[in-house]
Design a binder for these strands. Structure first.
Lengths: 311, 311
DNA sequence: TCAAATAATTGACCTAGACAAAATAGGGTA
DNA sequence: TACCCTATTTTGTCTAGGTCAATTATTTGA
């Protein structure tokens, strides 16, 4: 409602603050959460416009984004809310999630930082050729994702740079997958994510690994409602339904959703879940397989084949 | 909070209703909107669980989805809310947005309906070869999108079938774009969507048309915050920023967002907006170009080149 | 040292009212 | 008839503060 109109048309940069709806969009924190944090932790502290509506300064939005990222790694809001932006970044550096970055990866990261999209893309394509698709995904893309995430929290990477990176990886991966001969083989695997999970990169990485092993992959893209996953599995005669969850996925819905899906699916269809969402580590629900990393996917595939069809 | 746990584990299908959060996800209607509709129009009429929380039966969710779709075409909630599902579908059929479907398209639609993904994909690829990429996008993909939308509202198409279709088109388009030689040419065009606009198909269609004309396209993918679009345009030295808006895009944010973007961008960078969002037809804001269809993109490109660089 | 019980934290949900922006309808004029 | 300007709906987003189940942390007891 607010969030614009404040336009002064003075040609130079402006738009110094955002309404609560815009902040919800840009941070992924619900309006409810934003309001209750303000009450409980005295942060954020938005100004008010002429109509009494919240107006968030940009630096507070930046801080909210970092807090969200730290929470995705398991920290609790009450503990970190009162720190300054710089302190939060220091905390982050003390809790690295990535393995120590190899000089090779560092080279790719600098290409991203310098916005050399074309060079990045050909460097990536070259690595695919050199390592093969599977090793490329496991040894390059996965750690690179972590490194990019780190850089983002560290304040060294803008959102658009992350977008540029993600798009490049997607292009390279899709091209590589397209070269894998179309396999009529088994098992038949349906890939997708739950609603609210819009990150499709993990899906693509899984598809690359699976397709390479000769599985018949059908991707629904992201955000398929659960009843439709069930219908799609039936129509595609899927042996396995594979779900991907990014670190940002709302923890609560995850286990519930998986249980719901499991219950609606025929018993002979397996459910595989993977990704960097925290909720996946805690407990492993019954009757479904959790993949901690991409290598686990290959192992699971071997296992499935060893067990024979229809187990 | 509700939305599961009700699991009876009776093996057969269940999950007959959803909490308000799940409905928000699956319909795209905000919690606020769902609650106020209930107050104003006596629809939806969710049951309440043991804690007094709303529990929506599946058929009401279906009706909400249709209503959302009709509103995306410009109808107003107060007018259509009280009709039954069948009446709504009848209304829909009386307001077709698509041009009369050619038998050729009908063939593709049946492939979708019969879930013959592989055949659909090769039929599409074949059309690309036959017509060329540009005509394929303009004469096949665009009307096919409409036809699929129609079928969905008519109740003939499940969500997962739409996903299957969208993924197929994306795969075919990306492959085709990848074969276009990487052009270092001008103009340099940055493509993306605003936050909350997750439909990337329009973007891909535009990219296909533009790349074919020799423009240098850089896609950021979907949902880039406005300040980051500005930064990306600078870093990529873009001459043009192209935005895509699907019919489902929240009307209000659109014009505001475009004005904001326009104000933050240097004057010599053009802003192009296209897509099927209703808000685009009404008024054409200053200093930016609205594309009503894909042919308009080609015209605009010619015009830009005729005007010469740096106008 | 480990497990069970208790306490604190957290976010999703609730009601109900206010109000600006957008869409429609009314009325007068060229 | 076409057009513009002004009411009058209509609509969704925002406000406030309250409740509560589920999760996480801490203490206690064996």
């Amino acid at each position: 409602m607010s969030e614009s109109a404040s336009t002064l048309e003075t040609a130079s940069l402006k738009a110094p603050n955002l309404g609560i709806g815009a902040v919800e969009r840009d941070t992924g924190l619900s309006k409810d959460t934003l309001r209750i944090w303000e009450r409980r932790y005295q942060f954020p502290v938005p100004a008010r416009d002429a109509y009494g509506e919240r107006v968030y300064p940009l630096d507070q939005v930046d801080k909210l984004r970092i807090i969200k990222r730290l929470m995705d790694q398991g920290m609790r809001p009450g503990k970190i809310m009162h720190h300054s932006l710089d302190e939060l970044r220091a905390i982050k550096r003390a809790h690295p999630e990535a393995a120590p970055t190899s000089p090779e990866l560092q080279g790719l990261v600098s290409l991203i930082l310098e916005h050399r999209v074309d060079e990045l893309r050909s460097a990536l394509a070259q690595q695919v050729l050199r390592l093969g698709l599977a090793r490329f995904v496991i040894d390059i893309v996965a750690p690179l994702n972590n490194a990019v995430g780190e850089a983002w929290v560290g304040g060294d990477l803008a959102i658009f740079e992350e977008h540029l990176y993600t798009e490049s990886i997607k292009v390279v991966l899709r091209n590589a997958i397209a070269t894998v001969p179309r396999h009529t083989g088994s098992p038949r695997i349906l890939l997708t994510t739950f609603p609210k999970e819009e990150h499709g990169l993990g899906l693509l990485m899984a598809e690359a690994v699976l397709a390479l092993e000769g599985a018949h992959c059908v991707s629904l893209g992201v955000e398929t409602p659960i009843p439709d996953i069930v219908r799609a599995a039936a129509s595609q005669r899927a042996d396995i339904v594979a779900l991907s969850f990014s670190a940002a996925y709302a923890a609560n819905g995850l286990l519930d959703g998986l249980a719901e899906l499991r219950a609606m699916l025929p018993r002979n269809v397996e459910v595989w879940a993977g990704g960097s969402a925290m909720a996946l580590v805690r407990r492993a629900p019954e009757n479904l397989r959790i993949m901690r990393d991409l290598d686990a996917i290959r192992d699971a595939l071997m296992l499935w084949r060893a067990e024979g069809v229809g187990t």
